[in-house]
Design a protein around this nucleic acid. Structure first.
Lengths: 206, 206
DNA sequence: AAGTAATTTAAACATTTGTTTAAATCATTT
DNA sequence: AAATGATTTAAACAAATGTTTAAATTACTT
């Protein structure tokens, strides 16, 4: 059923996998071609250059990432529930796309202007109204009064880092892949508990 | 005063800077040589190969990293204080070496065996007795009863990630370098508060 | 079926990059 | 000062890598 992909799409899929796993500098066009079961020249035929192919992939991945966030913001429910779900969704998103955070950070480092090209995507978060909603909750005393910067950072730190550092912990604590997967699955509840307790201190949390 | 370095040491220093900033795949021997103000051939003359030079740098950085942790464990004080200081020291260490965490994760990904060569270094953490100490505190009910895996993960997540994602937040939230540095400095107190509250729930924290 | 355009392939090209070589320079010892 | 060994340099080499070319194949239209 997956056989019916065009050559162009096969290369795109392979490129996504390889770029996510190894980053731009860490892989070659030949590697991507091979992963797609294609000739080297075909990569250039369809995408002109490695840079252009990367730009394309990067953008699509970035959108996927941002949309997964916005999806939650737009729901109709109390901020506290929204936050809990946000944390959960975020954690699960990274669980499914564990290479993702590292990928973004590496490529921003390699080329800081990348993000400027994709700023529009991030504006969608701001225009979702989530920040205003949080401000109101803070004024009501429902939510801890700290800058949105810190809130964002706390959520991302605790949801993204475990997967960024997956191999590190496997190595240093001598875990198997399966044990690690299990641990990371457990960890979500701890993260959720800790963050919700901290962000909404006056509430009893199940 | 810094002029009195030997050629070998100049190359080592340059290599450390460049490797930390760009990773192994992200830089060239010529780049390192240039950063050291040296000839390309000198890099190979003193270190035989890029791989060997990298191995050397990696190991020294890793030791620096681990020793900064152990230092705290060995002090004589209640676990709760030890933890607070650990969090603080860890945060400050990454603040001073912001490229560090990303560097480690990237190179582990590139070559998983790297860590196996340096396992001895990490054993020193275990033999510091910190884990036993934590277990006792948990049995006494002083400390939240969660696996050391999760505790380690929480601390590292909140201390390391802010610096890993520094450029990401600068880009997406349109901050200047100075604003970001300031924010990250504030963030330490939030991290410390949140973690201490979570790990030692029955205590009042200043 | 012939002709046309798109796709695919193998080969080649130019650059980059890790490494080596052989000569030149410098420092140190005798 | 001569000689010896260490250090430095420029040049070269081989392999890898991004990209292009030109021919071969396929798909599609008339």
């Amino acid at each position: 059923m997956k056989k019916e992909l065009s050559t162009e799409d096969k290369i795109k899929e392979a490129a996504k996998t390889v770029f996510l796993q190894k980053g731009f500098s860490g892989c070659t066009t030949r590697e991507i071609a091979k992963a797609a079961g294609m000739n080297v020249a075909l990569v250039c035929y369809y995408f002109r250059s490695k840079d252009q192919l990367f730009q394309l992939i990067f953008q699509s991945i970035l959108e996927e990432f941002v949309f997964s966030l916005i999806q939650v913001f737009q729901e109709e429910m109390p901020l506290q529930d929204k936050m809990r779900i946000l944390i959960q969704k975020r954690y699960e998103f990274v669980e499914k796309n564990p290479e993702f955070p590292n990928f973004i950070h590496n490529e921003i480092k390699r080329n800081a202007e990348f993000m400027q090209h994709n700023k529009k995507v991030f504006d969608k978060i701001a225009s979702s109204g989530i920040f205003e909603e949080a401000l109101i909750a803070q004024q009501k005393g429902e939510m801890r009064q700290i800058d949105m910067f810190h809130i964002t950072m706390l959520i991302m730190s605790n949801c993204d880092f475990p997967f960024i550092s997956r191999n590190f912990h496997i190595s240093t604590q001598e875990l198997t892949e399966e044990e690690m997967t299990e641990k990371l699955s457990e960890h979500r509840h701890i993260v959720s508990d800790m963050l919700m307790n901290y962000l909404f201190p006056n509430t009893t949390h199940s």
